[in-house]
Amino acid sequence: MNEWRYWLAENKNTLIAVALFVFMFAIYASNHPAGFTPNVVQTAANKATLLAFVAMAQSLVIITAGIDLSVGMILVLANCLASWIVVGTAIETTFGIIAVLASGAFCGAVNGLIVIFGRLQPIVTTIATGAMFYGLALFLRPFPGGSVNETVADFMTSKALGFFPMSFVALAAVVLMVWVPYSRSVIGRAAYAAGSSEHAAYMSGMPVKMAKFTAYVLSGLLSAIGGLYLTFFSYTGEAAYASGNTYTLFSIAAVVLGGVSLMGGRGSAVGAIFGALAFRTIGDLLFVFDFDPLWQPLFQGVVLLLAVSISAFGLFRVRNKLEWF
C-alpha cells in the first residue's frame, strides 16, 4: 500500500531533473518571441540532443563511481570519422554509421580495459585517452571539411509527423534500446552495485568487472552517436579541441543536474538526459531575455549553481548533522 512511496524514493532524483527541465523550458518558451511552436521546440531539441547523448554516456560511467573525461573527444573523433565514411549509397552509408558506432564502442572499451585491468584512476586514464582520441581526430581532419549523406542527415534532424523533433525520437529510441535493457539487466544492476559499494558487490559475487567494462563501452558508443548527430547538423567534420572539452565538462554538469550522484550508485541516464536539456535551456534563456552574449558564461554559471543548490535544500531539514556528509 505504501508501494508508491518506495518508488518515489528510488526515482526522486530523476523526477527532480524532469521538473527542473519543465520549469526552465516553461520560462524559455513563454518568453520566446515566437512562443511555443514546433519550430522553437525543434531548434531547442537539435541543440540539446548532442549534449543529451554525451550526458547519457557520462552518467553510465559515473553510476559505477568512475568518470569519463574522454566523452567529448570520442564525440569529436566520431564526427571526423563520419565526415569521411557516412556518405554514398544507402548501403555504404549504413556501413559507415555502423563503423562510426563501433569505433566509439572501441574507444570506450580501451578506457574500460585500462581502468579495470590496469587499475589506473579513471580520471587520469580518460584524460590521456581523450588526448589520444583527439590526436586521431586531428589526423583524420587536419582541416574542417568532409561531407555526409544529406538525405539521412536531413531526415534525422527533421520533424516527425510535422511537429515532433526527430532528434528526440532518436534519443527515445536509444533510451529504449540501450538504457532500458541495460538498467534492467544483471550487468546494469551490478553497475549500480559497483558504484554504491564495490567491496560489497564483489563479496556478493556480482560481475563487477563486466559491469564496469560494459559501462565504458556503452559510454563510448553513446558519445559516438552524439558525434554522428553533430555531423548530421553540421554536414562536416572538424577536430575542434575546444568543443570536445566543452562537451566533456558540460556532460558532468548535466549529469549532476540530472540527479546522478558523483559518488556513484544513484541516478539514471534518463535523469542525465533531462539534466542536459535543462542545462541547454539555461544557455538559451539568455537569448530570449536579449542579454549581451558576453554575459553568457557568467549567467550560465550562476544559473547552474542555483539549479544544483535546489537539490541541497533538503539539508536544511536534516536535524542530525551526521547526515550532512
Binding site: 528510488e10 559499494s197 567491496h199
Partner: peptide, 17 residues
C-alpha cells in the same frame, strides 16, 4: 555486504536474479 543504494529485494537476489 549489502549495496546501500539498491532496494532490499535487489540485494536479496543480488548474485543470481
Amino acid at each position: 555486504s549489502l549495496i546501500p543504494d539498491l532496494s532490499v529485494a535487489d540485494n536479496i537476489v543480488i548474485s543470481g536474479p
